[in-house]
Design a binder for these strands. Structure first.
Lengths: 231, 231
DNA sequence: TGCACCCAAAGGTATGACTTATTCAACCCA
DNA sequence: TGGGTTGAATAAGTCATACCTTTGGGTGCA
């Protein structure tokens, strides 16, 4: 998943620092400084900076250095950028943005899934819905989270749309983030669990409208809860 | 927008070749071959390959080379990847995926925009709606396209959600692509133009439901037209 | 047949030399 | 004094080369 080697280490330092604002917009990184600061060679620094550039976090110019670009230019769909922002000071804003995105995408994905999920996927969703019910009752937050992520990822994948499918990891990061940072109730709400079962049943039964409605209730609820918690 | 320098040239060659399947999944690129093939140095090749790796188009392993990864792993939200796929053999699939994404996102964005667009943005939308009407009547496809892109980008930006806002460029690429490849009527449909005016008016008047409905009609129509054209 | 070991191949890193673009400022001319 | 031109300093961009590290596959021994 992550980028390997020394450039990866640089990236793992610089990325979060930029994403969190620790290195502010407009700041200039110079290769030579980075070289000695991290004790690596030009090769390594250049590759790391190139990657930051491809994410549009920075822009390199001769005779100037690599300037941190304004946030509006960042490639906010890049999985690494999302992870870095979720880890830092931007967490609230990032969670809100992602919340709205989920509200837009997941109900649509659920509707599509009800139309064209494979039999395997329908079975998997049923099984996951059962797991969710069990782990919620047992207040086993860790297992619940794992299955919750799998559930949403499966729905997105079952939609048959590659772009929706790719949001699976992103949604996973959101769910993980909000559990890790105590933005969740200690025990999953029974109402939410029942909605997941409804989504699974609707998709199994091939009922797009119902799947869409139940899923929308889930994600709208999540967004409202988030707004309430973050103020 | 594009990546500069020699690595950029490499990328501009390799990216489309991979995205179009010309270099098939599972194929292995070796640094040395690329060096002599393009007449550039190790440094340049490495940086280009690193970027492909960060887009998850390839994976580099010692003693093996850089292997082209299966499509499911590609970072399909990366603007460059989208552009490359739109230019190549995957165009149909890419347009369909993006079409569904638009159906999910743009109505939601329109609703949000109706709530919190700035006065400037509302004015801009009105102006753009007028331009669309005029250029459509004049059958000036080029200007129409330009204003159409601006219209959708403005709605997405006005939603106040940074992730929606970032889809502006993507939607622009879709609209450009379908005009360039004759997937559009010679003269924009008057009905579609009227819907754009409706969206603008609803956002100006602060009526989310109406904005959402009109926008949904637009993007659903576009998707259906696409499906009809592509069979 | 199967295991361990070794070697070669290819990417990963370091370094020095050179090229090129760009900024800033000094300077000259009107 | 103002403005344009030139030039030098600077930092990124590129190249060539050497060496390190990992690892897949082959070889040979038990």
């Amino acid at each position: 998943m992550d980028i390997q080697g020394l450039p990866g280490r640089l990236l793992a330092d610089l990325g979060p620092a930029i994403a969190s604002g620790e290195i502010p917009v407009g700041a200039v990184l110079r290769s030579e400084e980075l070289e000695e600061q991290y004790g690596v060679s030009r090769t390594v620094v250049r590759e790391a900076v190139r990657i930051l550039e491809s994410m549009r976090l920075v822009e390199s110019r001769r005779r100037v250095g690599s300037t941190v670009l304004p946030k509006e230019q960042w490639d906010v769909f890049d999985p690494l950028v999302i992870r870095w922002r979720l880890a830092g000071a931007d967490r609230a804003a990032q969670l809100r943005s992602l919340g709205s995105l989920r509200v837009a995408v997941e109900p649509a994905a659920a509707a599509l899934a009800a139309r064209q999920a494979t039999d395997d996927q329908r079975r998997e969703l049923s099984a996951l819905a059962v797991e969710l019910t069990v782990t919620a009752k047992a207040a086993d937050l860790e297992s619940f989270l794992r299955h919750d992520i799998a559930f949403h990822a499966t729905v997105l994948r079952a939609s048959g749309n590659e772009m929706f499918a790719h949001l699976g990891d992103t949604v996973g990061a959101v769910l993980t983030g909000r559990t890790e940072h105590q933005l969740m109730p200690h025990q999953p709400r029974p109402y939410a669990v029942r909605l997941h079962r409804e989504v699974a049943e609707a998709i199994c039964a091939g009922e797009p409208e119902q799947a869409e409605r139940a899923m929308r209730t889930i994600v709208v609820g999540a967004l409202e809860e988030l707004d309430a918690t973050l103020g």
